[in-house]
Design a protein around this nucleic acid. Structure first.
Lengths: 203, 203
DNA sequence: CGAAGTTACGTACCCCGGGTATGCCCGTCA
DNA sequence: TGACGGGCATACCCGGGGTACGTAACTTCG
């Protein structure tokens, strides 16, 4: 055995440091935002120095990107679970929308994904990542609903994006509300109304 | 007469400098974004130094805020003109939505208002400003449509925000398209469909 | 088992850029 | 016309992103 308590092999050390950095970055980026958070602060919170951070990540934007991707993985996984448990494709969309709104109650998610993400990484990059996660799930849900005859035909990609934009706004609005739990039904109703615009009347 | 060609009185000098700073800031913030644009670069482009910038504005965020407000004034004025020229309140909403999408073709507007604004100024501040401009126009248009019996009742404030979010997304999507002119009809159609969700079937 | 090579950091430094302090010049006003 | 104040330039501080380099630990191979 070595004299250090944790992490003997190199891969273990590397993974531990990367995880610690990611966790600290998630915490600080989510609380203070991208700009005000320094690499030094993140590294310090992770118990290492700036050198370690620059060894595992190309720079500040890359570190933030890693946090962003992580958030995307979590929300998309949650949405997929909800969708899988729904009785039909249309209900899956409705419940997914509500789940997304609830997920927006997490300050870190809002700050990283909705507020700072586009400005820090650029719109193109953000949408590229989201197309592999949240938008992939939403897009798949919409195609399924259309194939089932629940959703009207049209430019599904554009529709997907518009609905997503509306949901993001609703999420921010929800979080700003003094009593989110009380504001949720009203917002869910309005979001559902917009979703309903894409539905075919006959179930 | 003095030895300088422009600006003799103090008020004139002040206005000229402020205008030059605002114009330069609009140019650079709109082209490079909030972060990469330095106060020095803005002042230099305006033909003055940093001292002048800090004399007229509290700091970088305040300068950006001024540009943001300017953009808001322009778009809201444009929207009000369009709405005033519409035959009825519902058509005003539809034309307003299309006008907003067209306005998103301006790179400066997209960058300042849609991309960097929320991250640089904070969501609260941005929405506060927008509520005095774009959202004020949209909200008024919706209330008018409801009072005319064209729009279903509900939480108008929330609905306003959701529609706005969808339009912003559509605007970004439109700009990313290789041929915006060709993408506009499809996006307008989808946006109109979402708007239609809030309509009352009988005209 | 030990030497060479690689990985995982820490340390010291550069420099850009936001913000501040200070001083000068010129319009303003009595 | 002299004093006052606004408009602006200059010089400076310092926090923070990024880089260069040194070092210790792990790994690989003879």
């Amino acid at each position: 055995m070595s004299r250090r308590s944790p992490a003997r092999t190199q891969a273990e050390r590397s993974d531990a440091t990367t995880s610690a950095l990611l966790a600290a970055a998630r915490e600080l980026f989510g609380r203070d935002g991208y700009g005000p958070t320094s690499i030094d602060a993140v590294a310090s919170a992770a118990g290492v120095t700036k050198g370690a951070a620059y060894h595992h990540f190309r720079g500040k934007a890359d570190l933030f990107r890693a946090v962003f991707v992580r958030e995307q993985e979590e929300i998309s996984a949650r949405l997929e679970r909800v969708a899988a448990g729904a009785p039909d494709t249309w209900t899956a969309l409705e419940r997914g929308a509500r789940t997304f709104l609830e997920h927006c109650l997490d300050p870190t998610f809002r700050r990283v994904v909705l507020l700072d993400g586009p400005a820090a990484l650029g719109w193109e990059t953000v949408r590229e990542i989201e197309y592999a996660h949240v938008l992939r799930v939403l897009s798949a849900g919409m195609r399924a609903a259309r194939d089932d005859g629940h959703m009207a035909d049209g430019d599904l990609e554009a529709r997907c994006q518009l609905v997503f934009g509306a949901l993001c706004e609703a999420g921010m609005l929800l979080a700003r509300s003094p009593d989110p739990a009380r504001a949720l039904p009203s917002l869910t109703a309005e979001a559902g109304r917009l979703l309903g615009a894409t539905a075919i009347p006959g179930a």
